[in-house]
Design a protein around this nucleic acid. Structure first.
Length: 221
DNA sequence: GCGACAG
DNA sequence: ATCTTGTCGC
């Protein structure tokens, strides 16, 4: 793979990312969650795509796609490693979501094209990036209280929000993926909470992609 | 040169 | 991401 070529592609695509609200459906009735996991020691990439009904937040569909891993993990180039499997899972969905939560960053990326933005553009769907750790940017320390937030800044630009979703838990990094503003992205993440650190779309996608016991148990009943 | 570095 | 049990704290 040619990292320089991928870097150039990121810069080109980043210029096309829509950072303002551009929903077709408001409020969204179907909200999706996407995440990726690995098998066979990393040789197989497994993508999970789940659909929740809003505002009930009930799981109404989930699909899993498996493909051969094509690229190693390189910080800043995660989307190239994960989008092929995500596309495969997306094609399997019987219903497409009005808004999609992607596990990972959106524009809070060195070149403003994290996996949430990249994938959102590929399928032209509004996306929000929800990451568990920082990739770039700086932020002031957050208060201990849940709900505290701080803007994530990079090179003089606000690229997302650092938000403490739950007591004594590390904060989440929320950013625009595609067709959703930074503030609206945080608003929808907050609208999809159910008592856990992660919002429901991301939590379910993570459970399905990693075959968590919570999901396996749910799958039976 | 040194440290940072989504999943 | 993944390999993995118990364990400390609310």
């Amino acid at each position: 793979m040619d990292i320089q070529a991928l870097r150039a592609e990121q810069l080109q695509r980043a210029a096309e990312v829509v950072r303002h609200d551009d929903f077709d459906v408001m409020p969204p009735r179907l909200i999706g969650g996407a995440d990726v996991g690995f098998e066979q020691g990393g040789d197989v990439t497994r993508a999970a795509m789940i659909i929740l009904e809003y505002p009930s937040l009930k799981l109404i569909e989930y699909k899993v796609a498996r493909i051969a891993t094509i690229m190693p993990y390189i910080p800043g180039f995660l989307s190239f490693r994960e989008y092929p499997a995500l596309l495969a899972a997306w094609e399997l969905l019987e219903q497409k979501p009005d808004l999609l939560f992607v596990d990972g960053h959106g524009i809070s990326h060195p070149r403003r094209l994290g996996v949430a933005s990249h994938f959102g553009m590929l399928v032209d769907v509004p996306t929000i990036g929800v990451a568990k750790r920082r990739l770039c940017g700086r932020f002031e320390p957050l208060d201990e209280e849940p709900g505290s937030q701080q803007p994530l800044m990079d090179k003089g630009e606000k690229i997302g929000w650092v938000w403490r979703s739950k007591k004594r838990c590390n904060p989440l990094f929320v950013s625009t993926g595609h067709r959703v503003s930074i503030d609206t992205a945080l608003q929808w993440v907050q609208n999809c909470m159910a008592g856990y650190r992660l919002p429901e779309p991301t939590r379910w996608a993570d459970a399905v992609a990693s075959e968590r016991t919570a999901f396996l148990r749910w799958q039976e009943g």
